[in-house]
Design a protein around this nucleic acid. Structure first.
Lengths: 227, 227
DNA sequence: CTTGCATCACTTACGACGTAAGACTATCAT
DNA sequence: ATGATAGTCTTACGTCGTAAGTGATGCAAG
């Protein structure tokens, strides 16, 4: 009786609000500490309410990935060389992850093959094909760049979690490691820049090699020792 | 009062047993579904008992990473070229992750700078330095390869989680994507092989470039567009 | 206007999780 | 015999995702 309950009054919550708050909380505290209850509290609502706007927690995480990618990736600039296009793509991805550090781990887990990202992929592949790459090789190139960027972010985040002193102490008696760490910390930016530069240069030589061997011939014959 | 309790009878549990069981469960069901309680049950023991052999769950995960790395990485073969050494290192890492698929995600999270891995790193860096690489560049090379291998495994696992049909359907109207996916699935092996090949080729050109510019000069001047 | 219904919100509840605190017991050095 | 130590179990707390059910709101059809 008494107890004027106001339950159920529509709060005007939309999927957009939920997602925005989710990204904000993930950025602030990391996605690991993001829970349906905390997110609901942030929105002034009960936990179960969120399930009207999101299938479940995994759906929420997928949506975060999609959101970050959508706001980060742009179609390749017309008239740019394939090297510039690939470098720009890596840069966009890197900036997106930098803008949402707490969400990086999601990119390692969720595949992120949504229509929107596939469209971007298509345009990237088209540039590469026009430059002479076989479609399969072009796909490998994009995969390599994306994995490298995400991987470097993950590794850098993990490294940031351990105090650098501990590493330096552990590196005692290991002169080359010490020398490599001597001049300043290794930043994500430098890691990504070097990696992407190397990948582009590497695929330049792969492209040159493949163009000199026009039609269906044998694989690279003992390239890396991987099988 | 009655109730012949048999609690506390030493079960002869060791850290090695705990770790071995943890790796086994992680391999079977994935590390995400590994809990202290399940692990304890697997060992015929109560959950809290594990805390006498492991600091906490994170410590357990770190130990899993360490264990996999220790059983996978080998010191570089004497007399091999730096390219062979790097390729072999990538291959060892890849095989290790292949052997323990459920634990891959841990390699994205935990930094894995233990004394043992640092020793391996030192020997790798020594080979690269002897080949003419600056220590910092050598470190970037190893980081790039490790991140690429882990990143490709993660991406491949994520991709395996989504049914390939869905991707093919989504790729409808995207001719280049479709063409790239046309001849068979993209395996982890091929992704890693191509990436590592490209990285090695790329660092070959970086090495050649740096050797022609011996002492401290400007950075590559608009290399990738990353800053 | 009334009636019905889909939508949004809330409540309660369940089983799982990591782990702090403490009690018990077996083993071994003194 | 006497402690000390280390391995084990019990209980408990707070958190998590979410299934199931209840109630209120606002809109559309009669």
């Amino acid at each position: 009786m008494g107890k004027a309950r106001v339950q159920g009054r529509h709060a005007g919550l939309t999927r957009g609000h939920v997602l925005e708050a989710a990204v904000r909380l993930a950025d602030r505290d990391g996605v690991a500490s993001l829970s349906m209850r905390k997110l609901a509290a942030e929105l002034g609502v009960e936990a179960m309410t969120l399930y009207h706007h999101v299938r479940n927690k995994q759906g929420l995480e997928d949506a975060i990935v999609e959101h970050v990618l959508a706001e980060s990736l742009r179609p390749p600039r017309a008239g740019a060389s394939w090297q510039e296009v690939v470098a720009a793509h890596a840069d966009e991805l890197h900036r997106g992850l930098n803008r949402h550090p707490g969400a990086v781990i999601l990119f390692a887990t969720r595949p992120a093959v949504t229509p929107a990202t596939l469209v971007v992929l298509e345009s990237l592949l088209r540039v590469l094909r026009d430059a002479g790459f076989a479609p399969r090789t072009a796909l490998h190139l994009i995969y390599a760049v994306a994995s490298a960027v995400v991987g470097q972010h993950l590794a850098a985040d993990g490294a940031a979690a351990t105090p650098p002193d501990a590493v330096l102490i552990a590196a005692d008696g290991l002169p080359v490691v010490a020398a490599a760490l001597a001049d300043g910390p290794v930043t994500v930016e430098s890691r990504i820049e070097v990696t992407v530069t190397a990948l582009i240069a590497g695929f330049e030589t792969i492209l040159a090699r493949d163009e000199n061997r026009p039609r269906g011939m044998d694989p690279p014959a003992r390239g890396t020792g991987l099988e």
